[in-house]
Design a protein around this nucleic acid. Structure first.
Lengths: 326, 326
DNA sequence: TTGTAGGCGTTATCAA
DNA sequence: TTGATAACGCCTACAA
């Protein structure tokens, strides 16, 4: 059996209370006593019973992480989360996607029952997010979002705009003259970065608009049309790696050389980017770091520390990974 | 505040003992009373306090999942695990890799402290595995492995041999005459499947041996040598998608057409396979199903059900995903 | 500086 | 068929 407070108390010849004080370092304990207690505790391999502690303090040491999908990019964030929380003696449990759309109620119930110390919410559709944020607020459960924009929910964000901006300047620095953007018209963040860079360079933007929801296919059909495009780009910044890889596939079918004829940069640094022919240069999200930052933010809240200026919301920078496609 | 047993008891005008009996359906309760209790419980949205229950019963409803890396293939397994366990009212918490090699002690401690109802172990180096399996055995914590071979640990396995066998027959069925295997000499499972198929076809095996640990690079340099190979294959079964994609990159540099000149099949169905140019035909692991099977196995153990013939160990089949490369 | 005692919400024993 | 009541292991107000 695993040793409890009482076992240690008996072994050290003191009361339970003294053991508790000695172990958690709070209150006065004679230093000789403390030493004896600590050594006995170690010897018996004492571990607090978390269930008892949670029952007593009404405060669990679990963090629930809510993920609607488990796309590759989330994985490293979650690893960052888990490692940081574990180091702080919290354990993480991940709840994966609620299938039904009206299901935020059900999800909230699952969370409430688990009574987590805090919740991390990965990016999800806005309606789900706001319902959830409201619910957690009512329950007084501290929460932090990753890549969310919901009002009232602190969030760790990624500066996509700046990432694309820098990538485009990199392309220009390599001597590319006609730098196009491949992506959706309606999604602003990256597109704004592109426009900012082109304005600064004093060049005309070239938009290769994709309207297909499936990114690889959208990129691929754009790649197939490449030869007919006017003006003819010699560089392309894509919305994501998926789309860039589709584009690459389309170009490949047309025997257009990358980076010879066109340089290509993706976004996200999916694993597939490194495995492409040629390996894709791309703008990487600092996924692991994002997870760590979110965990730190939530731990800050839990510790009751005074929030910093931006209320725990932070924006992290991307990093350009140069491979062979540009 | 969340309603407890006592609240329900007061509301229903009975003792808490009766409420407990009514709710867990054990022991005699007057059916009218039961109805009243149940309806009150629902009305008050009663949820058992899991910490209290765990403290009392010394039995948690948590499953620890041990993963040393979070490579893409593991993700779907873990999702399958989590969903299956959640449906059975268990929650899953994932512990990610211990960096230090002698760290299985530390990991074991983390597990012991959490006192999980059971543990799922994803494939890891054999020395770690066996230390862990022994430790869990000593602690009497039920465990199941995924893709492990450790004696004494039940495991859900994948029939890679058969998967490659079928893929090679598929290539032959497409009229390919010279089917090569690209991979490591020392790794038997897939290679055995390849040899079995070639023997059945009455053809000579063609081995393209890779000795580089980094699979993409190994595959790529093999692809670059392709033109000089004798006998000259018109089809290749690769060890993994990573290696296949490297091979594809090498071929691409040499302007060798796929599947025109060479057909190519990968293994694993990594996401990158679908995003290649051309999209890669590959042998898929039934990852989600593996997770479900592991969860079911462990739940079976937990329920104390009599183990089936193979002691909860099962082997699942792969599935050929036909895309454009073959 | 140390110890006693009560309670967190459940389950389970024993009586009624 | 139901109800007091003890106990799980920990934390902490209060007393010594």
């Amino acid at each position: 059996m695993m040793a409890g407070l009482k076992d240690v108390a008996v072994a050290a010849g003191v009361s339970i209370r003294t053991v508790a004080r000695a172990l958690q370092g709070t209150g006065y304990v004679d230093s000789a006593t403390r030493k004896r207690v600590v050594s006995k505790a170690r010897e018996l391999d004492y571990r607090p019973n978390l269930a008892a502690r949670t029952l007593r303090t009404a405060r669990s040491f679990e963090i629930s992480v809510l993920a609607w999908s488990m796309e590759e990019l989330h994985v490293n964030k979650i690893i960052g989360l888990e490692q940081t929380f574990r180091a702080a003696h919290y354990s993480v449990n991940v709840l994966f996607g609620v299938p039904d759309p009206g299901g935020s109620k059900e999800l909230l119930d699952a969370i409430r029952q688990r009574r987590p110390a805090g919740v991390v919410i990965l990016h999800a559709p806005e309606n789900v997010m706001s319902a959830l944020a409201r619910g957690l607020n009512e329950e007084q459960i501290p929460a932090i979002g990753i890549d969310t924009q919901t009002p009232g929910l602190d969030s760790i964000r990624i500066d996509r705009q700046q990432g694309v901006y820098e990538a485009v300047l990199y392309l220009a620095g390599k001597g590319r003259q006609h730098i196009a953007y491949l992506g959706y018209q309606h999604d602003r963040s990256r597109l704004d970065g592109y426009h900012r860079a082109l304005t600064q360079l004093g060049r005309e933007p070239i938009m290769i608009a994709v309207d297909e929801a499936e990114q690889f296919r959208g990129g691929r059909s754009a790649g197939r049309r490449f030869a007919t495009m006017k003006p003819h780009p010699d560089a392309v910044q894509a919305y994501t790696d998926d789309m860039a890889l589709g584009f690459l596939a389309g170009l490949h079918e047309q025997n257009i050389a990358v980076p010879g004829e066109v340089a290509l940069i993706g976004f996200n640094d999916n694993r597939a980017a490194a495995l492409a022919a040629p390996p894709l240069t791309t703008v990487a999200q600092p996924s692991h770091e994002i997870g760590v930052a979110a965990a730190e933010g939530l731990l800050g809240k839990l510790s009751g520390a005074r929030p910093p200026a931006h209320n725990w919301t932070r924006t992290l920078s991307t990093r350009l990974i140069v491979r062979e496609s540009a």
